[in-house]
Design a binder for these strands. Sequence first.
DNA 1: GTGGTCTAGACCACA
DNA 2: GTGGTCTAGACCACA
Lengths: 121, 121, 121, 121
Amino acid sequence: MNFYFDNDSPIYIQLVEQLKLYIVSGKIEPGGKLPSIRELSLQLQINPNTIQKALQELENLELIYTERTNGKYVTSSKKNIGKTKKEMTNEKIIEFITDMANLGISKEEIIKNLLELGEKE
Amino acid sequence: MNFYFDNDSPIYIQLVEQLKLYIVSGKIEPGGKLPSIRELSLQLQINPNTIQKALQELENLELIYTERTNGKYVTSSKKNIGKTKKEMTNEKIIEFITDMANLGISKEEIIKNLLELGEKE
Amino acid sequence: MNFYFDNDSPIYIQLVEQLKLYIVSGKIEPGGKLPSIRELSLQLQINPNTIQKALQELENLELIYTERTNGKYVTSSKKNIGKTKKEMTNEKIIEFITDMANLGISKEEIIKNLLELGEKE
Amino acid sequence: MNFYFDNDSPIYIQLVEQLKLYIVSGKIEPGGKLPSIRELSLQLQINPNTIQKALQELENLELIYTERTNGKYVTSSKKNIGKTKKEMTNEKIIEFITDMANLGISKEEIIKNLLELGEKE
DNA sequence: GTGGTCTAGACCACA
DNA sequence: GTGGTCTAGACCACA
């Protein structure tokens, strides 16, 4: 797991986004234990308060849960994970389509563009 | 021209984004005169300083220019407008593809998804 | 005589500067009659008030003088013209040296630079 | 670091210019931390908004960068600093040569003049 | 009328 | 503590 941060948005938000992606894409496995806040703080060179804030958000989304005195775990609920994945996907698709529409770019052009990008890679 | 503002990002940024879209999509025509800062301020119920800040950004992007004591105009340079449009489009496409890849969604799935959205509408 | 204007400084100032240069460099001859404000206004596409303001400045500098009901003339006084030329020159040289010093560039480097520029042309 | 302000141009521009000089001449070292906006405001007796505006310009020029909630730093990029220094130097030299040419003063005369200034000092 | 600058001061998120 | 945003409002030069 690698994390990248820029100065364009709050660090805790960037952390939430990246952890969400690791969870919904399965790169962090369901039910797995998370490193402690202290550990994460050291590893990522981020203030523990900021880590805590990010993890709190993930807990609100029911993607992780806390076992008192024991640590934090990724949910085992495929349903929760799937729901978040679907939400994220839909949100991003809708936003993308809207953006393209506002730019005056049709669905056909988008698809053509995507296919070309596919060939180049 | 309609403008909508939410509380998720600074007003001046939202104004810049919306004006950019109006310009690159041609809804404000190249060379056209913009309403004065005072007028926009009244219309949008936004402080003139905030309007000024947004327009300054657009001027930095060379999408508008200022005639001293006369007013502000959209650039007539199709090149500038086209360049910005291309930049905005590419940026959003790349971001979208990256997001989808991180979510573990393949290009084929995206296209399928887009086509389905097309049918629904 | 050609005039060029940008939006970086007030037009009347740009007009003063350009006229000063034409006078001190002799491109407008001493004692010569200037076009009327109306004519200049038409030619340069500049508001007559702006022309008037610029000419007033030149009159304060004793580079031109007004013959009531007859028009405006460039001074015949070589002394006045020479004095202004010297002032402008010294001012610009001092400013340039100061700028270069602030940039940490020595006199020797400047001269080297100038000579190189000479060769290229 | 000393700052001087006159009434000939906007304060924020003068501040930008002076900070640029301090940066490109190395008097503020690359990577160094700038005083906070509030501190500068107090020291220079200038409104924080005006300071902010000046620093924003420097950030646009990529001469400084912001660490969220932490402060502002001079870039460590020698490339950026060098590029700006070169730009400033060339600009001023070209402007100077043009001015002198318009005044009808030859390169030889300029150099003679510079050398004389050297002797006087 | 136009845009530009500046101040005072409040308020916010973030770390 | 840090920077960022926004408003209210004054004032200015210019055309």
